[in-house]
C-alpha cells in the first residue's frame, strides 16, 4: 500500500507532467493533426457520379441538393453548414462517388461562402 501511494500520488503526477511535452496545441498557430479516416469535407469523384440522388434521399440533414433537369444535365450542391458529417452519403452511394476527405471545415459566420457545387454536369459533357 505504501509503495502504491508513492507511485500514484498527485505530486508525482504533476512532476511527471512538467517534464513531458504539453498535450494542448496552440491552435490556430500550432499544427492540428487529424487521423487519416477523419470525416471532414465532402468530396466527390465526378467521373463516378451519375446524379442518381441516392445520397440526397438518405441525407439526414438535407445538406445535399440535386438540381436535375435531365439525365445529362444536373447539379449536385453541398451545404456544409447543414452537414452533420455522418458519412451516410458515402454508405448510400452505390458507385463510391461521394465521400469524406480528412480536411477540417472550420466554423464561420458566413455559411453561404462554404457552399460547394460538387458536380455541375452540362448537356453533352462526359
Amino acid at each position: 500500500m505504501k509503495a502504491m501511494r508513492k507511485r500514484h500520488s498527485l505530486l508525482d503526477a504533476i512532476i511527471d507532467a512538467v517534464f513531458s511535452r504539453p498535450d494542448t496545441v496552440a491552435y490556430p498557430f500550432g499544427e492540428l493533426q487529424l487521423p487519416e479516416g477523419y470525416r471532414g469535407a465532402i468530396v466527390i469523384n465526378p467521373e463516378n457520379c451519375t446524379g442518381c440522388g441516392l445520397c440526397v434521399r438518405d441525407c439526414p440533414t438535407g445538406a445535399l441538393k440535386l438540381e436535375k433537369k435531365s439525365r445529362d444535365e444536373f447539379k449536385l450542391i453541398h451545404y456544409p453548414a447543414r452537414c452533420a458529417y455522418c458519412s451516410q452519403c458515402e454508405s448510400s452511394c452505390v458507385r463510391g462517388a461521394i465521400g469524406h476527405s480528412n480536411a477540417l471545415v472550420g466554423a464561420t459566420d458566413r455559411p453561404r461562402e462554404l457552399i460547394v457545387v460538387l458536380k455541375d454536369k452540362k448537356e453533352g459533357e462526359d
Binding site: 503526477a13 507532467a17 498535450d23 487521423p35 487519416e36 479516416g37 477523419y38 470525416r39 452533420a84 458529417y85 455522418c86 458519412s87 451516410q88 469524406h100
Partner: peptide, 24 residues
C-alpha cells in the same frame, strides 16, 4: 490529467470511425 487519458480513448475511436464523439 484524466481528460488527457480520455483523449487516448477518443483517439482510438476517431482513428477507427472518423469522429470523436459522433462516431456514425
Amino acid at each position: 490529467h484524466t481528460w488527457h487519458d480520455r483523449e487516448l480513448a477518443l483517439d482510438i475511436m476517431e482513428g477507427i470511425s472518423g469522429g470523436r464523439v459522433s462516431h456514425a
